Structure formats: structure tokens, C-alpha cells
Deep mutational scan, measured.
Amino acid sequence: CHSECLGNCSQPDDPTKCVACRNFYLDGRCVETCPPPYYHFQDWRCVNFSFCQDLHHKCKNSRRQGCHQYVIHNNKCIPECPSGYTMNSSNLLCTPCLGPCPKVCHLLEGEKTIDSVTSAQELRGCTVINGSLIINIRGGNNLAAELEANLGLIEEISGYLKIRRSYALVSLSFFRKLRLIRGETLEIGNYSFYALDNQNLRQLWDWSKHNLTITQGKLFFHYNPKLCLSEIHKMEEVSGTKGRQERNDIALKTNGDQASCENELLKFSYIRTSFDKILLRWEPYWPPDFRDLLGFMLFYKEAPYQNVTEFDGQDACGSNSWTVVDIDPPLRSNDPKSQNHPGWLMRGLKPWTQYAIFVKTLVTFSDERRTYGAKSDIIYVQTDATNPSVPLDPISVSNSSSQIILKWKPPSDPNGNITHYLVFWERQAEDSELFELDYCLKGLKLPSRTWSPPFESEDSQKHNQSEYEDSAGECCSCPKTDSQILKELEESSFRKTFEDYLHNVVFVPRKT
């Protein structure tokens, strides 16, 4: 048989008469490798580009789960590009990614509803959504962080984005990388972005840091009482949809009607710091009717980097990364020049730590249904340095008659930039024990000054392991946590139920 035959053949030295091919099969003959313009397919066939392209389009058009959109890589027609490569849609070739590779997620039936953290986790790592997304989240724990972890990498949506009755959302900033909504599939009414009845939605994105392009379709905003109209108009300008909307697409009466839409800028007039305090004062603000001013709200939190936005980490279910302080308005003076500047002394802060701070007014709604208010920009203030805590785990070892090696770990709280350490030492008198000992005694162990690591005695271990207080009263049991108490109650309830079950099964009433 021919060298490319495997198993047997019907005619000697003829690659077209093989029972099976050793390498690849091409047009009725066995070959060692697939010549151009053919590609290896499933490690035994040679196919042309049209064959591989037909497989790709067949799966793409069917949208069946589990099928493969075949691509070409290293002269092979394979189910998908290997790690580190992405497909070129024009020629199906796998090309190296520039940075992290995109991950295209194809949605069944063309859309997916995100109504819980669990459903959001199914899209973790996706960068391109081939379909439409509907966000409908009523509640949950730590929602802002969970949504950002699972949806934060999405850069492109081919269909539309719909935010509907998501009472738990305060902001859409968890879509931190969303840059493009194509609108290839539109919501009824030709809408590519749809926001309806979101009672706590206050911000779409921080438009000073976020760009969003909507290729096709219109915007729809109705019944978002805490979303200011200025935020919607800003989205029109940034996304390129200005002029597409009709009169009733953006409701003037049901958007922002319960919001404090600040239209003035508060400026800080005085800032002073110490290692654990920050004193702030800002310019006074009074609405047209000074009785509408209820006070100020001061927001602050630790910020290692200057990239904080107002609604980071917030949701309507209680999660809030900001510390909020309510401040009463100052006494009002008739003389504008003698107006008191409101302020606040922030206490209990960490030394040498940068804080993000902003302040906003708290006002009631005027009778004319106009909203007044003022808010400052987010500023960054760093507390002063102070003395560091003591170095940890000092170790001293003498390696000769004239040297001592000293080692330690950095302090747990540096409280500033540590530039150097101060080492103090003092000579001590020799131990009298060394002169009084009889060095001729056998088995004498000389006193040693070398360091030995501390260890816990058996008594201390027994005390720590004991669940009861000892007789001397030195140790006591740790208080039980809520989960331990709940577990004990469940076990007790189970024992009672099981005992009742045994009584009912074992003891049967005697027939009379």
C-alpha cells in the first residue's frame, strides 16, 4: 500500500485506493498535508475557505447554543480562536489581540433580562453583547459592586439597553466600559436606550469621564423622579442622539420631579488639616426662599486615587461607600458681607490618608415646582503625618564578641513616609551569675543571650482551647457569634421535631 494509506488498500502504491488515510483526505486521495488554498479540518480532512465560511455563517444565523462559528488559524479551520487571539470578521482569520481579548457573548432569543446578581454573573467577562440587555433589578445585597464585577467589562451592545423598574439602582456607572450601543435591534418605538419607572436612579454616568455613542435609535425617559433633566440632556449631547427624540420621548413632568437638581456650584473657602482632623468651610448658599434650606450634607471617604465619582458603590438597598454628615444651616444675616460661612470639623480620621470630599445642599421643593440647590466639586484632601507606631517583631542576635545583629519589621501604621529608623542602645553591667558559677561542674549549661522565638506554653494553649472559665478566673470563653447562636437554635429545633416524629412513629394507638 501507499505510504499515506492506513489499515489496508485495494490497489498497491495508489493513494486513492486506501481504506483510511494516515494524515489527511483531499478529493478522494490521501495526502501528507493540505496544500494551499485548503485548510486542515478536524485533523483528517482538507477543506477550502468557502466550506469553513459556510459553517461560520450557519452557526451565526441559527443562534443555536453550542454550535461553533468556525475560524481560520495556522492553516486550520477550527471552532474558535485560541487564547490571546480574536477573529477578523472580513476573512475569519485569528489575529493577536492588542491588550485583553474581546469576548463576544451571543444571547438566546436576542435579549437577556438581568433581574438578579445570579443572572448578571452569566455575563461575567463579556466585552461584546450580541443582542439586547434588559435591566430589571428590584433589590439585593452589595448590588453596585456585584454588577460592576460582572457587567463592568461590557464595551458594546449590538441591540438596545433597557432599564425598567430597577428600584435598587442609583447610577449606571457599573457599566464602566460601555462605549457603544449599535441599535441594530430596537425596542418598540425605535428606541435604543429605554429608561422607565426607576424610582431611585439619580445618575446615568459621570459624563466628564465617560463617552457613549448610540449609532441608531432614540432615547426614552419616563417616570424617573430623581433623575434630573440636565442629566438626560447631557446624554443626548454626548451620545449623538440630540435631535432624534420626539416631543413625548422625554417626559418633562415625570423626570426629576422629586430630585434636588443642583444648578449652582458650592466653593470651599477654608481648608485646614491635622493628622486626624480636617476643618472645612464653604461659601454660604440661600435659595430664593431661605426657609427652603434644610441644611447641608457632607460626604467623605478614603480615596487612594483621584478618580472618585459621587455615586460609586451606591445602591438604593443601603450600600453606600460614603460617610454622610448632616449639618444645620448657619444663622442668616441681613448683611451679605457678614454672612457666616458654614463648615464642619471632621474628626477621627487616619493620618497621612487622602480623602475625597464634597458637600451639597438639602432643600425642600418650592411652590413653583422649581428645584434649587448647590453642590461642590469633589475635592481631595490629605491629612498630615504623625509619629508612626512601633516597629514590629524586633530580633537581636550576637554573632561574635563585638557585634549584635538587630532586625525588625516595619510598623503596622507608618502614618507617613518613613525615611529612617533611630536605634538606641545602652551598655549593661555583666551578670554576677557568670562569676559565681563553678565551671568545672559536669552538665553545666552556660547562660545564653542568643534570641529564641517566643512560644506559647501548654497552660496558655489549654486556656485558649477551654470553653469555660478556669477556677483562677484568668480566662473566659469568647462570646458566641450570631451565626453560632442561630445554628444552635436550628439544631435544637431539629432535635425537638425529630423526637416528636419518633414518638408518633414508635407509639401507635392500640386498636379498641
Score class of each variant (00 low, 15 high):
K103D: 09
H106K: 13
H106V: 14
L107I: 03
L108A: 08
I114Y: 02
D115K: 09
D115Q: 03
S116L: 03
T118G: 15
T118P: 03
S119E: 07
Q121E: 02
Q121G: 10
E122A: 12
G125D: 07
G125I: 13
C126L: 00
T127V: 07
V128H: 15
V128K: 05
I129M: 05
G131W: 00
G131K: 01
S132P: 02
L133N: 00
N136V: 14
I137L: 08
R138I: 06
G139W: 05
N141Y: 13
N142V: 06
L143P: 07
E146M: 05
L147R: 02
L147E: 02
L147W: 15
A149N: 11
A149F: 09
L151P: 00
L153V: 15
L153D: 10
I154F: 02
E155T: 08
E155Q: 03
E155H: 10
I157T: 01
S158H: 09
S158N: 06
G159P: 00
Y160F: 09
L161A: 05
K162E: 05
K162V: 10
R164T: 15
R164L: 09
Y167L: 03
Y167T: 08
L169V: 07
S171M: 05
S173K: 15
S173V: 11
S173Y: 13
I181H: 01
G183L: 02
T185H: 13
E187N: 04
E187P: 02
I188V: 07
I188S: 11
N190E: 08
Y191M: 13
Y191T: 08
F193A: 03
A195M: 10
N198V: 14
N198K: 00
Q199N: 13
N200G: 06
Q203Y: 12
Q203I: 03
L204N: 07
W205Q: 02
D206M: 09
D206S: 10
W207N: 05
H210M: 13
I214A: 05
I214W: 08
T215W: 07
Q216G: 03
K218T: 15
Y223N: 04
L227S: 01
C228G: 04
E231L: 06
I232L: 13
I232F: 11
K234V: 15
K234E: 15
K234R: 14
K234L: 10
M235Y: 15
M235F: 08
M235L: 13
E236P: 04
E236F: 05
E237K: 14
E237N: 10
V238F: 15
G240S: 06
T241A: 10
G243K: 10
Q245D: 00
Q245S: 12
E246T: 08
N248F: 04
N248V: 08
A251E: 08
L252D: 05
K253V: 12
T254K: 08
T254P: 09
N255T: 06
N255L: 10
N255C: 14
D257A: 02
D257W: 09
Q258S: 09
S260G: 06
S260F: 05
S260A: 07
C261A: 15
L266R: 01
S269H: 14
S269I: 08
S269P: 02
T273S: 08
T273V: 06
F275N: 07
K277Y: 15
I278Q: 00
I278N: 01
L279T: 01
L279V: 12
R281V: 15
W282V: 03
Y285W: 02
W286N: 13
P288T: 09
P288K: 09
D289P: 01
F290D: 14
F290M: 02
R291I: 01
R291P: 01
R291D: 01
L293I: 08
L293P: 01
L294T: 06
F296M: 15
M297N: 15
Y300Q: 15
K301F: 04
K301A: 04
A303T: 14
A303Q: 08
A303I: 09
Y305S: 11
Y305N: 13
Y305A: 05
Q306V: 07
N307Q: 05
F311K: 03
F311A: 06
D312G: 14
A316S: 08
C317D: 01
S319Q: 12
S319C: 07
S319P: 14
S319L: 09
T323A: 07
V325S: 14
V325R: 07
D326C: 02
I327C: 14
I327P: 02
L331R: 09
R332S: 14
S333E: 14
N334S: 12
N334I: 15
N334E: 09
S338C: 15
P342S: 10
W344S: 07
M346T: 10
R347V: 09
G348F: 14
K350V: 08
W352C: 03
A356K: 02
I357M: 03
V359L: 13
V359W: 00
K360D: 02
K360S: 05
L362N: 00
V363S: 04
V363I: 08
T364Q: 08
S366L: 04
E368K: 12
E368M: 05
R370P: 12
T371K: 03
A374D: 12
D377T: 09
I379E: 11
I379H: 10
I379R: 11
V381C: 15
D384P: 09
P388T: 00
P388Y: 01
S389A: 13
P391L: 03
D393E: 13
D393A: 15
S400H: 10
S402M: 05
Q403C: 04
I404M: 06
L406R: 00
W408Q: 01
W408M: 01
K409H: 03
K409Q: 04
P411D: 00
